[in-house]
Nucleic acid binder design. Structure first.
Lengths: 195, 195
DNA sequence: CAGAGTACATAACAAACGTTGGGTATGTAA
DNA sequence: TTACATACCCAACGTTTGTTATGTACTCTG
């Protein structure tokens, strides 16, 4: 009944790492069973053994994307409230080459998520989760008087809209939006929110 | 030397219409030579006759997307300045089912544009164009005292970021963001900008 | 009226894809 | 030891893709 030889979870983690590698190098369009197998130095049979098929592979890729985004080198929140919200925003923005690559994958994931119903709902919940994180910081900021009163859900939606919209613009013109300008735009935006 | 039977430009326009139809029904992933030919009731030979290959087809699809977006039922700008900026934003937002479908295609176009260098630069210029339109309205608004002083380019980038970021959120949760809430969010955002 | 070039249809093509099933080795349970 | 489930490789299949060559009908030109 227990696995025969190898540690199932560890092996699955290997495949997961290969998925991420392929994703980083060729994006979602290049995410194929063969590419993952090649990156792993194994056969496609191994991949299908641990992941039922392409669908599950893509779904897992989206999970990895969220996890890796969360685990990326992040600025720790210096203080709850408005500074925390600022940190959330800066953590998403592509301030580094690494962050740029990550966001490129993220944006291209929207395409596959829009195409598949299951991935669609998963993505919907992801955004809901991000908004919840924003919301928590916003509520504190409002209590501390750093932000004016108002529906925190709507403020969260606005802040996330600004953030992701800026991501897209940076992606298509990285030279025009260096890190300093991104932070300046974010700070100006937050200043407006506080008024 | 002149075309034998048909009007070249008219026929090409037919193909263009078929491209748009396929795009609206199946998005960019479903944009294939055969799909376009089928939508046209013709063969793939016809398509390759008027468009060299897939690349040109996709490039043309992006052109159509921009044109159709510009030609979509739009609100006329009631007055120059801040109202004009508001109109620009509302014209982009997916306030109607038609606008929702259009934005779905638009977002999925980011993926193909990120993959191909030529399409990438084309998309970069597209965004530059949109920012220029925003900027024009912003400059007037600043002169009229509707907006505080500040680099109009940065304000334009911020406004466009908010708009496209909101588009993405609406796309993944249309029920949560009905038209009224979108306009309310936009108006609140504009009010913050004016402070 | 002959010839040439255009406007397509048809079909063959190789490449790449996801999926599937057979085969083998190796471990655990009886 | 026997039996079975796991882990995995290998190979083939059918499909879909973009590309391209061939063939045919037509219409302008000369």
């Amino acid at each position: 009944m227990p696995p025969a030889r190898a540690d199932h979870d560890a092996r699955r983690e290997d495949v997961s790492a290969a998925v991420w590698q392929v994703l980083a190098e060729h994006g979602f369009p290049g995410l194929t069973l063969r590419a993952v197998a090649a990156a792993l130095g194994a056969s496609t049979g191994l991949v299908t053994h641990y992941f039922g098929g392409k669908r599950e592979l893509v779904a897992h890729a989206l999970d990895i994307l969220e996890i890796r985004t969360a685990q990326r080198t992040r600025l720790a929140a210096p203080a709850p409230g408005l500074p925390a919200l600022r940190t959330h925003i800066l953590n998403i923005l592509p301030l580094t080459p690494d962050g740029l690559a990550m966001n490129r994958i993220w944006v291209s994931s929207w395409d596959v998520a829009l195409a598949d119903p299951d991935l669609f709902t998963a993505q919907t919940q992801r955004y809901e989760r991000i908004r919840a994180a924003f919301r928590a910081a916003i509520v504190v900021a409002q209590k501390q008087g750093e932000l004016p009163a108002g529906d925190p859900d709507e403020v969260a939606a606005t802040a996330l809209a600004f953030t992701h919209g800026l991501v897209v613009q940076v992606l298509f013109d990285p030279d025009r939006f260096p890190a300093e300008q991104q932070t300046r735009l974010a700070d100006d935006f937050l200043a407006k929110l506080g008024a």
